[in-house]
């Protein structure tokens, strides 16, 4: 445990010092990884801890991104506050559709989230007064902002990682794990599935929205199909599943692998990456449902023998 904290702190310091030695390309990749790792962790609060697989998290990523972008364009708030505002709106939006749909379990909830995600994308694409439609929104470029954003994204990731750990150990985490195990039995020990699922969806949605806001600032250009596309939603699911659903380190590893793989594939085989994700998903489910974490445990056990 202490070793884990020490290692995490060391990694954090190393990552914080790294930009001084990075090429712009790697710098970009790292910042992107931080945001995706954070989002995968936040997705995992709902998908892994509570066992409610969402195929619609892009809706919150997009909501947070566009709200933050609009606030920044209006010059109303400094960036961190604009991101938080975007996150809060995204969390509230998640609650609006989540409160009724979270009563559904298993595949039914997942299917409802596909509907929510696609409906949100359509509305955002055609609501051009707010989102700029398919031509998107451009944010003013601030010289040197990318370096600051690297640290801000890293700080956000650290916060989400600590939150993941804290939720897992808290009352909320225990309630969510119990709900995943058996909703009715959870009610029989006094757990209100509605309250705790709503709460975690709000937190997960808000964190995803904040990530969307930072993403918008970093790329200084956003457009609905990139922010809210089905591929975006899938990517959050994939990162967590590849790494290991329900764990903390899993989504971290999964997101890193995802970003690297994506970068590699987009560079060399742009037309293959969706199918390879699919193949990866099939392989994980068939051979190691606990993902990289499960594989790691298995290897450690074998080495110990």
């Amino acid at each position: 445990m202490k070793l884990g904290i020490a290692l995490s702190a060391a990694a954090l310091v190393a990552l914080a010092l790294l930009p001084f030695a990075l090429s712009p390309y790697t710098h970009n990749l790292m910042t992107l990884s931080f945001l995706f790792v954070a989002t995968a962790l936040a997705w995992n609060w709902l998908g892994g801890y509570a066992g409610q697989i969402s195929f619609g998290h892009a809706a919150m990523f997009g909501t947070g991104g566009f709200v933050a972008a609009r606030i920044l364009l209006a010059g109303a708030l400094p960036p961190p506050l604009a991101w938080i505002a975007g996150g809060l709106v995204a969390g509230a939006y998640a609650l609006i559709w989540g409160h009724p749909t979270l009563r559904l379990r298993g595949p039914y909830f997942s299917i409802a989230t596909i509907g929510v995600g696609e409906a949100t994308r359509l509305v955002f694409t055609y609501w051009d007064k707010f989102t700029g439609g398919s031509s998107g929104l451009s944010l003013p470029m601030v010289p040197g902002a990318k370096r600051t954003l690297y640290w801000e994204a890293l700080a956000f990731l650290a916060l989400i990682a600590v939150a993941s750990w804290a939720i897992r150990r808290s009352r909320l985490g225990l309630a969510l794990f119990a709900i995943r195990g058996d909703v009715e039995a959870a009610a029989d020990v006094g757990i209100s599935a509605t309250f705790y699922q709503d709460l975690v969806l709000f937190l997960s949605g808000a964190a995803t929205g904040i990530a969307g806001g930072i993403y918008a600032s970093y790329f200084s250009f956003i457009e609905p199909n990139d922010m809210l596309g089905f591929d975006r939603s899938i990517s959050f699911v994939l990162m967590a599943v590849i790494g290991g659903v329900g764990t903390i380190l899993g989504p971290v590893l999964g997101a890193v692998v995802f970003v690297l793989l994506r970068q590699f594939l987009i560079g060399s085989y742009p037309q293959l990456y969706l199918g390879l994700y699919g193949a990866l998903l099939i392989a994980v489910i068939l051979f190691e449902p606990l993902g990289l974490m499960g594989l790691g445990h298995r290897l450690v056990r074998r080495a110990a023998r």
Partner: peptide, 25 residues
């Protein structure tokens, strides 16, 4: 069933992605 549902869901989703990609190619 209840706990295994997510696995078949994700796997068949993966099959769909592969099919889409194959057709795209």
């Amino acid at each position: 069933g209840a706990t295994g549902g997510a696995q078949s869901l994700l796997l068949l989703f993966g099959v769909w992605l592969v099919m889409r990609n194959a057709v795209y190619l």
